[in-house]
Amino acid sequence: MSAELRIVLAGFGGQGVLFAGKVAAYAGLIDDREVSWLPSYGPEMRGGTANCSVTLSDEPIGSPLVTTPDVLVALNQPSYDKFVDEVRPGGVIVADTSMIADMRVRDDVETFGVPATKMAEEAGLKGLANIVLLGKLFAVTGFCSRETLDAAIEKCVPPRKAALIEKNKQAVDLGMGA
């Protein structure tokens, strides 16, 4: 990987897109790297599509808005369609195949289809497809160490939901093995 990793995570509002992005950003923070996280905001957040840009870098970050991502994590069909052509040639796409029926696969990027929603539900981790995909992204890119990723999860899960920390870590395992 280059010194800079630029990620777009996209899906429906409520799929945990912003949260998964925040975990990745926190991982960068813990490793004392430069990081930025930028959500889409406004009406489209309410029931529509949500996406966020995450950049991990060893240099000060320019625009936090990722326009030609190294990595796309897509959680639904409209998000896949919207961003598939923006990924830089040689980049990576991680997509939830249980939500994306019509997956047009580019031959100049590496595409990993993971039925994350289905896997999460079967494993008793309903609602954690976002972290399953993040686990897959972690396995593919190694954007941080596993210790760092676990620590980032602990940092991002709010204290009143502390019970979810273990489940998030299980979801990472699930994604890594997918």
Binding site: A25, V35, W37, L38, Y41, P64, L65
Partner: peptide, 10 residues
């Protein structure tokens, strides 16, 4: 601006 207000950084 909206970019700086919405973005997270360390």
């Amino acid at each position: 601006d909206g970019l700086l207000g919405q973005m997270m950084e360390p």
